[in-house]
Amino acid sequence: MKKLKLAILATAMAATSSIGWAQDSKAALVKQFIDLQRPGIEVLARVLVEDSSAQIAQAGSGYLQTQVPAEKREAAAKAADAELKKYFDDAYPYVRDKAVALAPAALGPVLSETFTEAELKQLIDWLQSPLSKKYEEVNPKLRNALTEKLVAETKPTIEPKMRALDAAVAKALGAPTGPAPAAAGKAPAKK
Rank of each mutant, 00 (worst) to 15 (best):
K2H: 15
L4H: 09
L4F: 08
K5H: 11
K5F: 11
A7Y: 10
A10K: 01
T11A: 12
A14D: 03
A14W: 07
A15V: 09
G20T: 06
W21Y: 09
A22I: 04
Q23Y: 00
D24W: 05
K26N: 00
A28H: 04
F33T: 02
Q37F: 04
I41N: 00
L44P: 00
A45R: 00
V47A: 00
L48Y: 03
V49E: 00
S52Y: 01
S53V: 02
A54V: 06
Q55L: 12
Q58C: 07
A59M: 04
G60A: 05
G62T: 14
G62K: 06
G62E: 15
L64T: 06
E71A: 08
A75Y: 14
A77H: 02
A77Q: 13
A82G: 10
K85H: 02
F88H: 02
F88R: 01
D90W: 07
A91L: 04
P93S: 02
P93R: 01
Y94V: 09
D97I: 04
V100D: 01
A101W: 05
L102Y: 15
L102S: 12
A105H: 06
V110N: 10
L111F: 14
E113R: 14
E113H: 06
F115N: 09
A118S: 12
L120A: 05
Q122G: 13
L123H: 08
I124A: 05
L127W: 05
S132C: 13
Y135E: 15
V138Q: 14
R143A: 13
A145V: 02
L146Q: 07
E148C: 08
K149F: 14
A152Q: 12
A152M: 06
T154Y: 06
K155M: 11
P156G: 04
T157V: 13
I158D: 00
A167H: 11
A167G: 10
A168N: 13
V169A: 11
P176A: 03
T177C: 09
T177N: 10
P181A: 02
G185M: 15
K191I: 08
